[in-house]
Design a protein around this nucleic acid. Structure first.
Lengths: 220, 220
DNA sequence: GACGCTGTCAACACTGTGTCGAGATTTGTC
DNA sequence: GACAAATCTCGACACAGTGTTGACAGCGTC
């Protein structure tokens, strides 16, 4: 146990009269342990006991702080989402549509890349946890609404041609980004290299929104 | 137990001298039970015991036929993939690129929609099973290679403009389809309606491959 | 009629989750 | 500085699920 505490709280205890770590410290220790372990293996392969030991507490004590390991991931994910949103806000000052799209995509990509472990764990847990699924759905829905509004704006001012309903287009483009980022971050195959992923996605977005297919009336 | 057997083998046993069901029957019963139960809940929520009981056997006997419940899903998925491939082959006779793309996408969509339960379970198990992940990776890789070849062909004959590397484009478009189908089949939010999903995807594909953005050189 | 093959399952060992209740520690109050 | 309340801690338990073992049953066949 002493060994585990050292992992998280630094140097071993020497002085006298040291109280036990506060609740906040413990909670933080659990979150840090979770993010560290997620870098090594998936949440399914991490037991509540692993998280508890990593934070220097027993398993029942873990349950004093979190209802389950999903709850830990949810807390981590909340932070990440907050960070991603903040990143996008910062990019609002850009000018032309190309730059807006590029910066928005790049910003999300950066945030996720900096916390790969959490992003990938979240993608994985979407399958089994309704709460993760709902949180994620809200995030994507937010992106979709902004995208839809932007497409409709560009169509109204005549800059973008008509075509599929703006929302359907927005949904398809946003899911594409989500899935492609996931593949790139996890080095799944097939994937796009980290260096090329932004350019590729931006190109598809720009053509899907602004481009007119040369073959629009060829066949069917 | 008798009740479970009736579920799968039809009418209750009456005659004399009936041998126990053959190994093939049992294996089929397990697969059928799995597909039926997957229509109701996810594979995580289905225990080996559920599958065994549904097939009228005990849990240890289940392990005589399959190494795990993942192995059952893998067998189901193998069939589905085979069916999807066959569907695409049938569409080879179409003429213009628009029709080729549309028929290819529609064919995959149909196959998956007809076995929603399996397709969704596979997407879910990609997270936790390396074997499912690898099988799925091979499937998508196949689509990507065909798409890449098609794009390069169209570029060579001057029908499609240059841009991002053909393979990167192909990867992005195929992941988009995968993710959008998944969202549509599971009625996730946000999703595209079943009726509009093909048109939307085809439009993005055509524009991404053939369309030139009107703003290509607008901003930075 | 005993050998081998395919099936079959009760009982076991194990891993992991979540809960309970009894106690220790800390904090606030007078 | 003592007492109560709130906060924190964990041993021990109940439970659900997985996968294995070993004994044994039916069936063809030489």
């Amino acid at each position: 146990m002493a060994v585990s505490e050292e992992q998280v709280f630094g140097r071993p205890w020497r002085g006298r009269r040291r109280q036990r770590p506060s609740g906040d410290q413990r909670e933080r220790a659990i979150l840090e342990t979770a993010e560290r372990l997620l870098g090594e293996r998936s949440l399914n392969e991490i037991s509540v006991d692993d998280l508890a030991r990593g934070a220097g507490i027993s398993r029942p004590t873990f349950y004093f702080y979190f209802a389950s390991k999903e709850a830990v991931l949810l807390t981590l994910l909340d932070r990440l989402v907050e960070e991603a949103r903040a990143g996008i806000e910062l990019e609002r000052l850009s000018q032309g549509p190309l730059e807006v799209v590029r910066r928005g995509i790049a910003s999300v990509h950066e945030t996720f890349r900096d916390h790969r472990a959490i992003a990938l764990a979240a993608a994985e847990m979407r399958a089994s946890s309704a709460e993760v699924r709902e949180l994620w759905a809200r995030v994507i829905e937010g992106f979709v609404q902004e995208t839809t509004a932007a497409i409709e704006g560009e169509r109204r001012r005549g800059a973008a041609p008509g075509g599929a309903p703006a929302r359907d287009l927005a949904v398809a483009l946003n899911w594409m980004n989500e899935r492609v980022f996931q593949a790139t971050l996890s080095s799944e195959v097939p994937a796009i290299s980290d260096a090329a992923v932004i350019d590729t996605l931006v190109e598809v977005w720009m053509r899907a929104i602004y481009g007119n297919s040369a073959l629009e009336d060829e066949a069917g």
